[in-house]
């Protein structure tokens, strides 16, 4: 095994061990979307009428509509959680250990990204399994085809978290990120309501939703769950992921980034 792969395996294993130890984190990561699915969606089912639009071929209930958005929610919250743990790591010093490895820094940060994405995907599948128990079943092929979509979406949201973690000075500032990043990103997207529905109420809000990378991540997941490929969403998500990753690499660059101001 090459040194780069040895490091990747160790970083993934460490992240997995940390996740197993933090059962509370796992439960809360599942409870959050389940509350939306079983309580919020049930309440809104009567209020929101959804017409047939791709990838759906028939009328669907609101619960069915928001499942992909809630998968995205898990990835979004986990991406931010992972960045929170990076800020914590930096304050506690273990980030220094990672940064002083002789392996390329971009690779080490990508390893962290892959590790946190894989953990997030595990949680998404747990959520989908529970949703299936409650009667929201998807095409069998969709469960398999959503995996690459979850990787692309998870990497994009994880890269956003990574970029933010390089810009946040202290752990305390993280609450602001939750308010100014997670909530606007989630609510100004197609996770809870289709874009055409949003356009009916406000053109400006619709346009904001349309450029939100989270919207495209959700649509990529939505189409994949029904064994379809949304090229536009895939390109948007991948490009946004690349931009966030470059921003993160800049942030953690020892010569140019923000890290030099904080040691």
């Amino acid at each position: 095994m090459t040194p780069a792969l040895i490091a990747l395996r160790a970083i993934v294993l460490r992240e997995a061990l940390r996740f197993v130890r933090q059962r509370g984190r796992f439960i809360s990561a599942l409870v959050r979307p389940l509350i939306w699915l079983l309580v919020f969606a049930a309440g809104f089912r009567a209020a929101l009428g959804l017409s047939i639009s791709p990838p759906y071929q028939t009328y669907i209930t609101y619960e069915v509509y928001i499942v992909p958005g809630l998968c995205g929610m898990i990835l979004l919250f986990n991406g931010m959680q992972s960045s929170l743990s990076l800020v914590y790591d930096r304050e506690m010093g273990s980030m220094r250990l990672l940064m002083t490895s002789p392996l390329p820094r971009w690779w080490l940060l990508t390893c962290r990204l892959i590790a946190s994405t894989l953990i997030s995907i595990l949680q998404v599948y747990c959520f989908l399994a529970i949703a299936a128990v409650f009667g929201i079943q998807l095409p069998m092929l969709g469960y398999a085809l959503v995996f690459p979509a979850l990787i692309v979406a998870g990497m994009m949201l994880g890269a956003l978290g990574l970029a933010l973690s390089s810009l946040i000075k202290q752990l305390e500032n993280f609450a602001g990120v939750m308010n100014f990043v997670i909530f606007p990103m989630f609510f100004l997207s197609s996770a809870l309501y289709p874009l055409w529905k949003m356009a009916e109420s406000s053109r400006v809000l619709h346009d904001i939703c349309a450029v939100n990378p989270f919207t495209h991540a959700v649509e990529l997941i939505r189409f994949a769950l029904y064994a379809q490929f949304n090229l536009m969403a895939a390109v948007w998500t991948a490009v946004a992921g690349l931009v966030f990753l470059l921003l993160a690499l800049w942030g953690y660059d020892p010569a140019r980034g923000m890290i030099r101001r904080k040691v």
Binding site: P3, I6, A7, R9, A10, I11, S101, P102, L108
Partner: peptide, 12 residues
């Protein structure tokens, strides 16, 4: 120690 070794590309 194993984790650190892996960060230096040393495994197994």
């Amino acid at each position: 120690l194993h984790y650190f070794a892996a960060l230096h590309g040393i495994g197994g």
